[in-house]
Simulated assay, not measured.
Amino acid sequence: MDNLTHSLAGAVLGQMGLKRKTGLAMPTLIIAANIPDIDAVAVLLGGHQHLALRRGITHGPIAMLILPLLLWAIMVWFDRWQTRRGKRPEKRLPLHKGWLLALAYIGTLSHPALDWLNSYGIRFLEPFSSQWFYGDTIFIIDIWIWAALIAGVWFSLRRERKGYGKWQRPAWISFTAICAYIFANGLITGHAEAVAYERLQASDYTSAKRPALLVVANPVPIAFWQREILWRDRINFGQEDYSLLTDFRINRKVDYINYPNDMAKHAAKLDEDMRAYLFWSRMPYARVLPKGKNTEVVMRDQRFSNPLAEDRFTATTLVPDE
Rank of each mutant, 00 (worst) to 15 (best):
I138V: 09
N258P: 09
Q239C: 10
Y181T: 05
V195M: 11
D39P: 08
G10E: 09
R158T: 04
L70Y: 01
R123E: 01
F237W: 04
T314F: 01
A102R: 09
T108V: 02
D311V: 15
D136C: 00
R210A: 11
Y105M: 07
N218F: 07
R300H: 12
R249E: 09
Q131G: 10
Y285D: 10
P27G: 02
N34W: 05
L149K: 02
I173R: 03
S207A: 12
E322A: 14
S207L: 10
F78G: 06
R287Q: 13
D2M: 15
V254F: 04
H48D: 09
L18R: 10
K162W: 04
P284V: 12
N3H: 15
Q201F: 12
I38Y: 05
D2W: 15
V12F: 03
G47R: 07
V216A: 08
A202T: 14
L308W: 12
G292Q: 04
P68N: 04
L4P: 13
K293Q: 14
L51Y: 06
M26C: 08
G14N: 03
Y134F: 03
S129T: 06
S305H: 09
A264I: 11
Y164Q: 12
G98E: 02
A11R: 09
F304R: 09
A102P: 05
L70H: 01
H96S: 08
I140W: 01
T176S: 14
D136F: 00
W77G: 01
P36L: 01
S7I: 14
A151W: 08
I122N: 00
D142Y: 02
W132V: 00
L18A: 12
L24P: 01
A177Q: 08
A264T: 11
I106D: 00
T317F: 09
M64G: 10
N236L: 03
I188A: 05
Q82W: 06
G238L: 00
D273F: 13
R300E: 11
I229D: 01
R300K: 15
H50G: 07
M263Q: 15
P89R: 04
Y259I: 13
P219M: 02
T108R: 02
A151F: 04
S305F: 06
P320N: 13
L278A: 10
Q15F: 08
N236I: 02
T176V: 13
I182G: 02
V12C: 07
A212D: 15
W116E: 00
C179H: 14
I35C: 03
L69A: 14
R88N: 03
T246I: 10
